[in-house]
């Protein structure tokens, strides 16, 4: 009688552990997915902003046709990209094309006085930030999820129900990987 009760308690305990472990794994996987979706939203926003930007600056920057064409080309490649790897590569190129553009802008004081351009620039800066912050958040979530999958005891449940490790969003652009300088100006 006593052994039966003990057995029932142990089994109930194990079942409860499995249920709660499974549920939390599902929750964390959804958080990873959600974080990925956020990156997509911001990338789409960047694609939408670029035609506007080109339209606004075209008249001012007659000598910078190459820079502008590079941006347009990088954008259409990024829009067409399908796989995660392709996407990361194309978006990296777009980022560096926009970086070059920001450097050139300094030579056009007229442009920097244009209200329309200033508000576009704010939108673009913010979208760039949002992309890197959502990437940052995505990688944090992936790290947490992968730790859960590897660590005991949740690794048992993860193995049984085939929870696979997620991929980090790696930065393709070599320049971004370098340790940045800190300027105290």
């Amino acid at each position: 009688m006593v052994t039966a009760i003990v057995l029932i308690v142990i089994v109930a305990f194990i079942v409860l552990f499995f249920i709660s472990s499974y549920n939390s794994l599902v929750k964390f996987r959804n958080q990873v997915k959600n974080a990925w979706a956020q990156i997509d939203v911001q990338l789409k926003r960047r694609h939408d902003l670029i035609p506007n930007l080109i339209e606004t600056v075209k008249g001012y920057m007659t000598h910078e046709r190459d820079t502008l064409e590079n941006i347009t080309k990088a954008r259409s490649q990024a829009v067409a990209a399908e796989s995660v790897g392709e996407k990361a590569k194309a978006e990296g190129e777009l980022t560096s094309a926009l970086g070059k553009f920001n450097l050139v802008v300094e030579n056009y004081p007229d442009l920097k006085a244009n209200q329309n351009f200033l508000s576009l620039q704010e939108e673009l800066t913010s979208t760039e930030n949002k992309i890197s912050f959502s990437r940052q958040n995505y990688n944090d979530q992936v790290l947490f999820f992968n730790n859960k999958i590897q660590m005991f005891p949740s690794n048992i449940v993860a193995g049984m129900f085939k929870f696979n490790e997620e991929e980090f969003f790696e930065i393709e652009d070599q320049k971004e990987k370098e340790v940045p300088k800190v300027s105290f100006s």
């Binding site: 974080a35 911001q42 913010s126 930030n129 912050f133 959502s134 958040n137 944090d140 979530q141």
Partner: peptide, 16 residues
């Protein structure tokens, strides 16, 4: 104030 609003959005994303 687009900039302020954008920055709050950025930090919402960064903090998850």
């Amino acid at each position: 104030h687009p900039q302020l609003y954008n920055i709050v959005e950025e930090m919402k994303i960064a903090s998850g």
